[in-house]
C-alpha cells in the first residue's frame, strides 16, 4: 500500500466529495434540460403525503407520493391501488416474456421458486380511458346493487351492499386516483410513440414480478406491479404554504400540482397551488 501524506488524503477526499456532488447535480440538470418527457396536472387525488409522514415532528421535509392504480381486465372486479402494488390482467405470459422474464421454463417446481422483481418501464395514464372504465364500472355496480335492493325491500344485506356500492361510486368520482398503469415495456421511445400525449401519459421505471394467479381452477401467470422506482416528490420551500397545515390539506384535498418528468424519467414539482377545499 502507498503511504499517503495527509495532504494527498485531503486532496483525494475533497475531490471525491466534490466529484460526487457535481455528478449528482449534473444528472439533475440533465434530467431537467430540454422539454419534459411528461407534464401532468395532478391533484391531492394523485399526490399524497407518504404514510406515516403526516405528523412527523422529527422531519421537517415535505414530500408527496404518487398514488397509482393498475388497469384491470374487463372481467375483473374493482381496481388496485398502488400502495401495495397490483396484478394486471394485461400483463400476461406473452407480455412478461417480452419484458425479458423467463416464463417459458415454467415447471411444477416453479411454484416453490418465486420469480424476482425486474425493473421495466411502466406507462401511467392520467384521467384517460382506464379511469373512465373504472368510474363506469363503479357506477354500474352501484346501479346493479340499487336494483337488487329495490327487488328485496327490507333485506339488510342488500341495503348494506347498495350503500357500499354507492359510496364506492362516489369515492371513485371525487376522491380516487385517476392515474393508472396501463402498459409496460423496455424501450422508452417506442412506448412514447405508442402513447404520444405527454400531458396525460407518463413513462417511469417500476418493478414487475410474475406471479401465479388461479381463476376458475385455471392457473395462469400474471405480472404484479410491485412499485414505481421513483422517490417521493420533494416539495421545495416556496411551494409548502399551499400544503399548510400539511396534515389537513393532504387529508381533505385542496391543491393542484404540476409535476414534470425529465430525460431520466425523474420528477420535479413545477407548481403547487391551494384550491377551494371540497366538503
Amino acid at each position: 500500500m502507498i503511504a499517503w501524506s495527509r495532504r494527498r488524503t485531503l486532496i483525494a477526499g475533497a475531490l471525491l466529495i466534490i466529484a460526487v456532488n457535481v455528478f449528482a447535480l449534473a444528472g439533475v440538470a440533465y434530467n431537467r434540460s430540454g422539454e419534459p418527457t411528461s407534464i401532468l396536472h395532478l391533484s391531492e387525488r394523485e399526490l399524497q403525503l407518504p404514510y406515516g409522514r403526516v405528523s412527523s415532528k422529527e422531519n421537517s421535509g415535505v414530500s408527496l407520493s404518487l398514488v397509482w392504480r393498475v388497469r384491470r381486465g374487463n372481467d375483473a372486479d374493482g381496481a388496485d391501488y398502488g400502495a401495495y402494488g397490483g396484478a394486471a390482467d394485461w400483463l400476461d405470459q406473452a407480455k412478461l416474456a417480452a419484458l425479458g422474464f423467463d416464463v417459458g421454463s415454467d415447471t411444477a417446481r416453479r411454484k416453490f421458486k418465486p420469480w424476482r422483481s425486474k425493473e421495466v418501464l411502466l406507462v401511467l395514464e392520467f384521467d384517460g380511458p382506464a379511469y373512465r372504465q373504472a368510474l363506469a364500472r363503479a357506477q354500474q355496480s352501484a346501479d346493479d346493487e340499487e336494483k337488487l335492493q329495490l327487488a328485496n325491500p327490507g333485506n339488510q344485506e342488500f341495503e348494506r351492499r347498495a350503500k357500499r356500492a354507492r359510496d364506492n361510486a362516489k369515492r371513485e368520482a371525487s376522491d380516487s386516483s385517476r392515474l393508472f398503469v396501463v402498459d409496460a415495456g423496455l424501450d422508452a421511445a417506442a412506448l412514447r410513440a405508442q402513447y404520444p400525449d405527454p400531458t396525460h401519459t407518463l413513462i417511469v421505471r417500476g418493478q414487475v414480478r410474475p406471479q401465479r394467479a388461479t381463476r376458475d381452477r385455471q392457473d395462469s401467470l400474471r405480472g404484479h406491479i410491485a412499485a414505481l422506482s421513483i422517490a417521493p416528490i420533494n416539495v421545495p420551500l416556496q411551494f409548502q404554504p399551499a400544503l399548510k397545515p400539511p396534515a389537513a390539506a393532504a387529508k381533505t384535498g385542496s391543491f393542484s400540482a404540476t409535476v414534470a418528468f425529465g430525460r431520466r424519467l425523474e420528477p420535479w414539482l413545477v407548481a403547487l397551488a391551494e384550491t377551494a377545499r371540497r366538503k
Binding site: 500500500m1 499517503w4 495527509r6 488524503t9 483525494a12 477526499g13 471525491l16 466529495i17 460526487v20 449528482a24 447535480l25 444528472g27 439533475v28 421535509g61 414530500s63 421505471r205 422506482s229 421513483i230 422517490a231 417521493p232 416528490i233 420533494n234 431520466r264 424519467l265 425523474e266 420528477p267 420535479w268
Partner: peptide, 25 residues
C-alpha cells in the same frame, strides 16, 4: 431526496471509497 433522484447502487461505491479513504488515512 431533494432532487427526486432515482435510487442507484452507485452511491454505495462512493460511500465505500470514502470510508476506505478515512479508514486507511
Amino acid at each position: 431526496q431533494i432532487f427526486n433522484i432515482t435510487p442507484s447502487d452507485q452511491a454505495l461505491l462512493a460511500w465505500a471509497a470514502y470510508a476506505l479513504l478515512l479508514a486507511y488515512s
